[in-house]
Structures are given as C-alpha cells and as structure tokens.
C-alpha cells in the first residue's frame, strides 16, 4: 500500500501533465466550440492538480477560482452571445493565420528563454521551509512586502480591463 502511495506521489505529477496535454490538444481539435470549452475547463482543473503536486496549494485554489470558475464562464457566455453559423465559425479562425503564426513563434521563443534561464533542480532549503508553514502565508509574506509595486500595478491593470470592457460594450450599444 505504501509502495502504491509513493508511486503516486512520484508519478502523479507526470500522469497529470500527460492528461493535461491531451485535454489541451482536445481544445484545439474539437469541431464543436462548446466541446472545446469543456476540454479547456478540464485543462484548467488539471493544471490546478499540477500546482497541488508542486506543493503550491494556494496557487492551485486560485487557479480553480479564477481560471476554472471565472474565465471559462466568460468563454461560455461569449459562445452563447455570438450565434455563429458553421461557415462563419470556420472563417473566424482562418483569417489571421499569418499573424497568429508570428505571435506563436514569438511566444515559443519567450518560453524557451524562460525555460533555459530557470535553474531546475531541488528547491533551496529556505523555500521548503516556507512551504511547511502553508503556501498562503508564504505567498502573502513575499507579495505584500518584496513585490508591493507589482501588486499595486495589478490593480491598475484590473481597472483598465474593467473600463475597457464597459467602453467597448456601452459605446457600441448607443450607436
């Protein structure tokens, strides 16, 4: 039994990662938009599982709350709002092939830079010590002291998003 548990704690992360990639592929390849969104929802939930296996329980909860419980709702609402006919739906995703290829290439390069710049391996002793006190406190301890400026800027980012959404919908509605 103990062997089974240690097997899980060792390989669960990789199993989760594998399934996450499968559902992510499902998002891209399903023909039905709502099936895509359901696959995306599963992906988000699985990513929360990955965070959990990495001992980041607070981030896992946030992942569920914001991504699975918030952003996907927005996606579903969008699907319900925009009544697409089949041919329109096809054209929608095919117009900007070149631009999206460029964007994807840029994103891949950025990811590669981050990936090769990250020192992988066991975490330093200080980090594991913080995790033992619960990751919520660890996050709070650094976010509200060392990273105070990004935290305050985040509120401005949120403000811009809110104003932007209202301007887009309200001004259009008048004309």
């Amino acid at each position: 039994m103990e062997a089974l548990v240690s097997f899980f704690s060792n390989y669960m992360l990789y199993i989760l990662m594998g399934v996450t990639i499968l559902t992510a592929v499902g998002v891209v390849y399903s023909k039905n938009a709502v099936h895509s969104v359901v696959a995306l929802l599963l992906t988000m939930i699985l990513v929360a599982g990955i965070y959990l296996m990495l001992d980041a329980e607070f981030i896992a909860a946030v992942q569920l709350l914001v991504y699975a419980g918030g952003i996907i709702v927005l996606f579903v609402f969008m699907l319900l709002l925009v009544a697409l006919h089949k041919d329109e739906a096809l054209r929608l995703f095919n117009t900007y092939t070149l631009i999206s290829l460029g964007l994807v290439a840029f994103l891949v390069i950025m990811l590669a830079v981050v990936f090769f710049g990250t020192p992988f391996g066991p975490a330093p002793a200080t980090v594991t010590n913080i995790v033992k006190g619960g990751s919520t406190e660890a996050v709070a301890g650094t976010l509200y002291s060392a990273y105070i400026l990004p935290f305050e800027i985040a509120s401005i980012l949120l403000l811009v998003a809110m104003v932007g959404a209202i301007v887009l919908t309200k001004e259009r509605g008048k004309s």
Binding site: V73, L74, M78, T136, E137, V139
Partner: peptide, 20 residues
C-alpha cells in the same frame, strides 16, 4: 451578460488578493 462576467472576473481576482 458579458459585461457582468467581466466585472465579476475583476472582482474575483481582487478577492484572490484579499485572502492572503
């Protein structure tokens, strides 16, 4: 409905900052 969802999302992120 879309506007409500966007404003909800922003407040949702805000509460995430409030809890820790």
């Amino acid at each position: 409905y879309y506007v409500v969802a966007v404003i909800f999302l922003i407040f949702d992120v805000e509460t995430v900052f409030l809890y820790p």
